[in-house]
Simulated assay, not measured.
Amino acid sequence: MGALSKRKGPQAGREPDVEAALDDLYVTPPAQFVARRAEMSAAAKTAGRAEDARRIGAARRPTLAAWAANLLLRSRPEESRRLLDLGPALREAYHVLDAAGIKDLAEQRRRMVSALSRQAAQLAQQAGFPLSATVQQDVESTLRAVLADPEAADSWAEGRLEGALTPPSDFPTGTVPAAGAPRKPTASKAPPPSARTRPKDELAERRRQRQEQLDQARRTAEEATRRLHDRRAEQAEADNALQRARDRHEHAEQQASAAEQHLREAREELRQANHEQRETEKRSRASADALAQAEREEREAAREVKRLSARKR
């Protein structure tokens, strides 16, 4: 399995293990990757682990297909190990043109790639991020690349893919020769005398030019793949930003609605308080008038008592 067993536990002098943190980060769904990366990096920096914080902060967000492939590796280690073990046997069979071996191994490849890609889709669905048909095709392409290319196998076994892998174009995928049948050389006519006498350095020059063209084409393809990865990452970031903006807008609307409701309730309380104040003022004036009347009556009664008392004497 190789890289699946490279990181058994925390590295000496590092707690918590930055490798384990990165492993966890790369099975974080892409939509949550940036926030999780920032959280992990900040935690490492707060703990005084500046180099760990830098490594975590430099991690690039995987595409959805790459994330699903990473998740498959971590969640289905035994099945992943069998796929990685099949790759060398399949490549060796093609190398020696073992037709019977190729046929058997190719059938295993077809079954395993199909089964594992379905498992990856199920894991993604369970995580809340279903894969589209196009993304699932990218997962299958990655698994085929793992079988065909040792470097691709090592990359996947690390569990930190950033983008989908593509199998090499020169890896045979079609029909194979019948068992025991030797490869037949391509029929060709004898070259004319002028061709036979062509200088060897001219042939070498043409081969060199073809190799240069192939190298340039590969560099162009790699650059296009990097640009595509960057554009996909930018699009995902833009989608996340849009969702955050929508969430903030919805939250603001809810707050505004609550504030308006509170304002309506406050105005109703004020209206009721004004009404109660007016009624209380009316009762207060009526009570004051009654008090004044009672005082006048009491004075008049006192004067009458005084007057009558004086006459009696």
Rank of each mutant, 00 (worst) to 15 (best):
L4Y: 07
G9C: 06
G9H: 05
Q11L: 11
A12D: 14
E15L: 15
V18T: 01
D23R: 13
D23V: 08
Y26D: 08
A31Q: 04
Q32P: 04
A35H: 00
A38H: 07
M40P: 02
M40H: 07
A42I: 02
A44G: 00
T46V: 14
T46Y: 13
T46L: 15
G48S: 03
G48V: 00
G48T: 00
R49P: 00
A50D: 12
I56Y: 04
G57I: 00
T63V: 05
L64G: 15
L64N: 13
A66G: 04
W67F: 07
N70H: 02
R74V: 12
R76Q: 10
E79P: 02
R81L: 12
D85R: 14
G87P: 00
A89E: 01
A93P: 03
Y94P: 00
A106S: 15
E107A: 06
R109L: 14
M112L: 06
V113R: 06
S114G: 12
L123I: 07
A124I: 04
Q125E: 08
A127H: 00
T142D: 04
R144T: 10
V146K: 00
A148W: 05
A152C: 11
A152W: 04
W156Q: 01
E162Y: 07
S169Q: 14
D170T: 13
P172A: 03
P182H: 12
K184E: 14
K184Y: 12
K189I: 04
K189C: 08
K189M: 00
D201N: 11
E202Y: 02
L203S: 13
R206K: 09
R207H: 10
Q209G: 12
Q211S: 10
Q211G: 09
L214M: 12
A217S: 05
E222T: 13
E222M: 09
H229G: 03
R231N: 06
R231M: 07
R232M: 15
A233I: 07
D239E: 15
D239M: 15
A241I: 11
R248K: 08
Q254F: 12
Q255R: 09
Q255S: 11
A256N: 06
S257M: 10
A258D: 11
R264V: 02
E265I: 08
R267V: 03
E269Y: 01
A273N: 03
N274G: 08
E276Q: 14
R278D: 08
E281S: 14
K282N: 08
A294K: 15
A301W: 05
R303N: 00
R307T: 03
R307E: 02
K312G: 09
